[in-house]
Simulated scan of single mutants.
Amino acid sequence: MNTSTESTDAAFTSHEDPHPNYRPVSRLAVLSLVLAPLSALSLIGPVFWSFAILGSVVGLVAWRITTANAEMVSGKSLAAIGMCFSLLFLGGAPTEYLTHRYLLFSKASRFVDHWADLVAEGRLREAHQLIIPPKDRGTHGESLNDYYGEGRDDLKILAGGEETPLQSLTRFFDTEPAKSIAAAGKDAKWELLEHSDLLFDRVQKVDEFLLIYQITVPDQEQPIRARLLVDRQYGHGTLDQWMLARITYHTDD
């Protein structure tokens, strides 16, 4: 009688808990692992850094829960992997972003230096080319003499609207502050005052920088303070990736 009862109890217990060592996997640990590859989107830009932040927080919470309740729940290794990958992108993405932005600014300032050198040397047609979108420039299989020929009457949509290249060149260097800068020639002294990036878009592949210069010109009481808006589009070579979109006077207002 006792043997039968013990056998029945054992069978019942076995039926109740067929896998006595089974521990469910933490859902947070699984979520942490899912967020790990999404954290790679942080390399695109700051708007996606939230994936790495969320993945790091979820991974840390999951790791602490699975560590404290190791006998009841599993997934500690998943949480650790997810957390490590998210932390990697959380630390790497801002560093890569700031480095890339600094390098782009360096290229933008070199582009402005190149443009200023062309103007100082009186090479106004070459300087004017750099205010035109790269695809519309006359440097692609066409001489500048032909591009700016006086007899040329075909209209182009250039920096100032629909006009001939010669009209665009004349209008640009007859407008301040470009007129005074060109008149100063090599006597103009450029000093960068400040700069900022207005657009930094890796998805659309367009960058935009604002650089403010103080330009000292002999025989002028007040230096010229100019705002230069510089655009960059990917895939057009080296210097011709850049374009001087606008140059205006800078005021403190």
Rank of each mutant, 00 (worst) to 15 (best):
S4Q: 15
T5V: 12
D9I: 15
A11N: 07
N21D: 14
V25A: 11
V34D: 10
V34S: 06
S39I: 05
I44Q: 01
I44E: 01
W49I: 11
A52M: 14
L54M: 11
L54G: 04
V57Q: 09
I65E: 10
T67F: 11
A70S: 09
F85I: 04
L88G: 07
A93N: 00
P94K: 01
T95N: 02
R101N: 07
F105L: 07
K107H: 13
R110Y: 15
W115G: 00
A116R: 00
D117G: 08
L118C: 08
R123P: 06
H128W: 04
Q129L: 10
Q129R: 04
P134C: 10
K135G: 11
G138N: 05
G149V: 14
G160Y: 09
G161R: 08
L166D: 03
F173N: 01
A183K: 04
G185F: 03
K186E: 06
A188F: 02
K189G: 07
K189V: 10
K189T: 15
S196F: 11
R202D: 05
V203S: 08
D207C: 09
F209R: 00
L210A: 03
Y213H: 03
I215D: 02
V217K: 03
Q222L: 11
Q222D: 13
A226W: 14
Q233F: 15
D240S: 13
D240F: 15
M243E: 06
A245F: 10
R246E: 14
H250E: 07
T251Y: 10
T251V: 10
D252T: 06
D253K: 08
D253E: 13
